Simulated assay, not measured.
Amino acid sequence: MKVSEAMTRDVQIARPDQTIREAASVMADIDAGAMPVGDHDRLVGMLTDRDIAVRAVALGKGPDTMVRDVMSSEIKYCFEDEDAEEVCQNLADQKIRRIPVVNRDKRLVGILSLGDLARSAPEHEVGAALSAISSPGGAHSQSADGRW
């Protein structure tokens, strides 16, 4: 199965010039812990509820802080035509629960989460990924050099 068959296509996107208050409000409305950050149709970052808590609130930054100031700007992503099972294993290896999906022109086309995979991939693969992601230790950040 390809990533495009499992991913969520209707993705809310934060803007770098948006306040974290606005982005957090959207995250609350859609019940999401993360949002891709886009500038036009280019993926420029990822904003998580943890970014807001650790990079803003914990450092005394207010709700009018710009998304660009707390987002992870170097993020991991996958391609829509990749094998979903391989991406599932990579999520486990990198200890991340969701990943933006781009086309081969590197335009954002969706997001793939463990929940998406749970609905589409064989149960044992998702269970193994969740187990690996949930084990202590290792990198817990979207900050890296892009694709794994």
Rank of each mutant, 00 (worst) to 15 (best):
E5I: 03
L112S: 03
S73C: 05
D81P: 03
D145K: 13
L114V: 15
A53D: 01
P63N: 05
G110D: 00
P100H: 02
M27N: 04
L112Q: 04
I20L: 11
D31N: 14
L130P: 00
V87S: 02
G45M: 07
R97Q: 10
A23I: 02
P100F: 02
V102M: 08
I99P: 01
M1H: 10
K76T: 14
V87R: 02
E5V: 08
L47M: 08
R15P: 00
E82Y: 08
R119H: 11
C88K: 02
P36F: 08
M27E: 04
P100Q: 05
K106M: 14
P63C: 05
Q18N: 08
D17E: 14
K2P: 05
G110M: 05
E85L: 15
G62Y: 08
E82N: 09
T19V: 07
Q94D: 11
T48I: 08
D39E: 15
G127N: 11
H140E: 11
C78G: 06
E74F: 10
M35D: 01
S25I: 12
I13L: 15
D81E: 11
K61Y: 10
S25F: 12
D41I: 01
G115S: 13
A118I: 04
L114C: 13
S120V: 08
D17S: 14
S72Y: 06
M35A: 11
I133N: 00
A32H: 09
I30K: 15
S73D: 13
E86P: 04
A121P: 01
G45Q: 05
V54R: 11
R107H: 12
P63T: 09
V109Q: 06
D29C: 07
A92F: 08
D69G: 00
H140A: 10
E85A: 13
E5T: 11
V3W: 07
R21V: 09
D105Q: 14
D39Y: 12
K61I: 01
I99D: 02
K2M: 12
G127T: 10
D93M: 12
L117M: 14
D49W: 00
A53E: 02
I75Y: 04
E80W: 12
T19Q: 04
V87F: 04
V54P: 01
G60A: 05
I133C: 09
G137T: 03
K76C: 14
S72H: 06
A84H: 03
A92S: 14
D116S: 03
R147G: 09
S4V: 13
L117Y: 06
K2G: 00
R55E: 13
A34D: 10
G60K: 03
D49M: 00
V70I: 15
L59Q: 14
D145V: 12
M7L: 09
V126W: 00
L130V: 12
L114A: 05
M27T: 01
V126A: 03
Q94E: 14
P63W: 09
D49H: 03
R104Y: 06
G137D: 06
C78P: 09
P16C: 09
A23H: 03
A58W: 07
D17P: 08
M71F: 07
P36I: 07
V26I: 15
Q89M: 11
N103G: 07
S131Y: 11
K95Q: 12
G146N: 07
P122L: 03
D105V: 00
E5Q: 15
S120R: 15
P36D: 09
V70G: 05
R107S: 11
E22F: 03
M7E: 07
Q94S: 13
V57S: 02
R104G: 03
A14R: 01
I13W: 13
A34S: 15
Q18H: 04
S131M: 10
